[in-house]
Amino acid sequence: MRELVILGTASQVPTRTRNHNGYFLRWEREGILFDPGEGTQRQLIHAGVAASRITRICLTHVHGDHCFGLPGVLSRMVLDGVAHPVHLHYPASGEEVVRSLVSLATPGLDLRLHPHGAAGPIADGIDIERLRHRIEAFGYRVAEPDGRTFLPALLEKAGVGGPDVGRLARDGSLGKVRLEDVSVPRRGLRFAFVMDTAVCDGAYALAEGADLLVTESTFSDDDVRLAEQYLHLTAGQAGSIAASGSASALVLTHFSSRYDDVELLAAQARLTAGAATVVAASDLDRIPFPARRSNDGRAP
């Protein structure tokens, strides 16, 4: 199962309707928590997500609205008796902040720290790119490997069935039958997470081919000067990043408290987002992945 659960959508300060940041990605056996701001532990309860489902925590940077919920989440996992290892990824320049936050948590969790300082892979299927913010920041891309989809009619014609299908998938051939004779390429799903940043090469790289792209949209296009000053994105810029990468779906979040109605931001993003579906996230939304694309990058 693959699904994004929105735990919070506020930037800098929470509001009556928006908690600080927090995003939980269900990715088959992995449960990845991104940028847990204050109140994330409580938001997990409201969203019906058990803290025990978390296997990784990924911080884009160490501004408080993206990490001050970390001690509470870790303490809750200890209280719930989580026994599996939990991997914490974060910019190496934030080492002191991260270790201070971890030190506040209840001890007893098998927490494994993974600082990073350059673009590239950081775990199986997870890559990072450098973003452009007031402190060091990185965005994340989670991708499944490309594979193949069996075609039942061709399997039947080739006389392959039952356990032999699994053997064919594993070995690539079964007698004279090759895997490519009875299947078609299947493009792996891709998720991208772009938080606090100005427009930069890293944001475009993360968005490339994304099935589900999450980006900050702190400011309206009318407030572009504020975005430039604080190194954040406007809604229109977020849409342009999605369009440039041919993303299937764009989820906007990290909204300034100056905007009561974030549909204004969604409307601005739609003008620049190309074919991407645009959603302005609300706290506790559950967002499914779009239909899987064909191997040429188009939706089936």
Rank of each mutant, 00 (worst) to 15 (best):
S93P: 05
S294T: 09
D222A: 13
A242S: 06
S75R: 08
I287D: 03
L264T: 14
L231Y: 14
C67I: 10
R293G: 01
P71L: 02
V194A: 05
A227C: 01
S183M: 09
G188Q: 02
T234Q: 00
F219K: 10
D261T: 01
A137D: 06
V184K: 13
G159P: 04
G81A: 11
Y23R: 05
A137Q: 08
G139N: 04
A235K: 10
K176P: 03
A281W: 07
V160P: 09
F191R: 03
A299V: 08
G117Y: 00
H116M: 15
R258M: 11
L179S: 14
V78G: 09
P290F: 04
R99G: 07
S240I: 01
A192F: 12
P14G: 11
P185T: 04
G139F: 05
A10H: 13
A83P: 00
L109D: 07
L104G: 10
R112Q: 15
F68K: 09
T272V: 02
H114P: 01
T15A: 03
V78I: 12
V199F: 09
Q41S: 13
D65L: 07
T15L: 03
Y140A: 05
G209T: 03
E28R: 15
G161F: 04
P121N: 04
V160Y: 12
H63S: 00
R112G: 08
I57M: 05
D283A: 12
G172N: 05
S100N: 12
G209S: 08
H133P: 06
A50M: 01
E129Q: 14
R141V: 11
H46F: 14
V78R: 10
T218L: 07
L74P: 06
M77I: 06
R258P: 10
G120N: 08
L179M: 15
V62L: 11
G239K: 05
A198R: 13
E180Y: 10
H116T: 13
Q41C: 08
F191S: 09
L174A: 12
D261S: 02
I54L: 07
M1V: 11
A123K: 04
P36T: 11
L264F: 09
L174C: 13
A267Y: 00
Y204K: 02
S75Q: 09
V73W: 07
A249W: 00
W27P: 06
R76H: 13
D35M: 06
H87S: 10
S244R: 14
F68H: 13
G159N: 01
G108K: 11
G37F: 06
I57L: 09
R270I: 05
E96K: 15
V194F: 04
R292G: 14
G117P: 00
E228C: 12
H66V: 02
V182C: 12
D80K: 14
I54W: 01
F255Q: 02
H254D: 00
R298P: 06
W27C: 03
S11V: 05
E216S: 15
A243G: 09
Q43Y: 03
D260R: 15
